[in-house]
Nucleic acid binder design. Sequence first.
DNA 1: AACTTTTCTTGACAAGTGTCAAGATCAGGC
DNA 2: GCCTGATCTTGACACTTGTCAAGAAAAGTT
Lengths: 198, 198
Amino acid sequence: MKSRPIDKFDRRRDELAESALLTLGELGYARASLREIAGNSPFSHGVVHYYFQDKLELVIYSVRYYKARCVTRYDAVVRDSTSPDELIEAFAEKLAQTIRAEAPMHRLWYDLRTQSMFEEPLRDAITEIDATLEAMIWRVVDRYATLTGAPPSVPASTAYAMLDGLFQQALLAYTAAGETVLDGLAAQVRIVLPLMVR
Amino acid sequence: MKSRPIDKFDRRRDELAESALLTLGELGYARASLREIAGNSPFSHGVVHYYFQDKLELVIYSVRYYKARCVTRYDAVVRDSTSPDELIEAFAEKLAQTIRAEAPMHRLWYDLRTQSMFEEPLRDAITEIDATLEAMIWRVVDRYATLTGAPPSVPASTAYAMLDGLFQQALLAYTAAGETVLDGLAAQVRIVLPLMVR
DNA sequence: AACTTTTCTTGACAAGTGTCAAGATCAGGC
DNA sequence: GCCTGATCTTGACACTTGTCAAGAAAAGTT
């Protein structure tokens, strides 16, 4: 079975996951077939079932694999900012930047999160990831509160929901209209973050 | 071709749309097949192409049909409230109520909106509907501002994005955990709406 | 009643899906 | 070298999908 090189096995899984993310980000969950996914990899379509039991297992593994790297995206911003305004600007810039660079990954995330309302098997993984995203956002808001010297005016779940709403709307507009909308996102962040502290 | 009873033709389309909404709300856009949709109607699967050119045309027609009725959902609240607190309570209650009563429709909406980032043909219709939703929310916020006597502190697009974020998160939690989360939504609205006026 | 047009059903089509099993290919130990 | 187990490919399976065409049934017209 899985004798020694359990690392190599896992490295292949990651390789598959990376190819899967490419296709999933391009086509979405529903239209990304295993053949298409394998087509974007050095392997053939049958190999998927050697490393994963299901299409679902592959998808969940892939999105976990991606999000694991990304929940630290704003940590440098949190660490290095020394004033409220600096934090806002750096945070807003990072938000715009990740839309520019990884729009397909983000729309995939929203696709899966929505799909989890229809397909129960997705739900646990999505709920768990969403919680880590909430924590990620809260580190920003909490730090902003510290820098301003005022306590947060909203709980973590609310802060996350609000900023996620802004982000999603920006992603939507970016997909439809491109680049130009990203300034608007920064402007919104400049308005909203200050509302989150007393 | 379409001789006289153009009304009857349209009434059938509406009938089909209603059946489609049932199925789409249950299974989501990807897994709702025309056969399944027709199964939830008095007709057979072939009839769809008599009234619609595409699956896409049916879906777009259906969601338009639904949203047309729903953009007035909060207008009574706006009209009848005479104090800021009354408006907040009535608005929060209506939000919770629509999740309770029409969760499948809402998750369908989010499904389609997300899908529009992958399928260009959906984009125009979705963008247009989203704009009417923004206007719907803005009528609430604007009225709240009037009742408090203070000007809004955020533009319409921001207010919509924030509240939509709250709503979506509540819908997600409701789907996973049920009923109990709806109190949390009301609490969040009580916090957030006051932040939207100066 | 006969005829025409609208409406709907049935059955088929080509294409695509996830899954799996049989076997080819490769790597490492003897 | 050869053998064994891990790794990968190929080809098939059962099934579902949107679409459409041919014709049945119903409605309307004269």
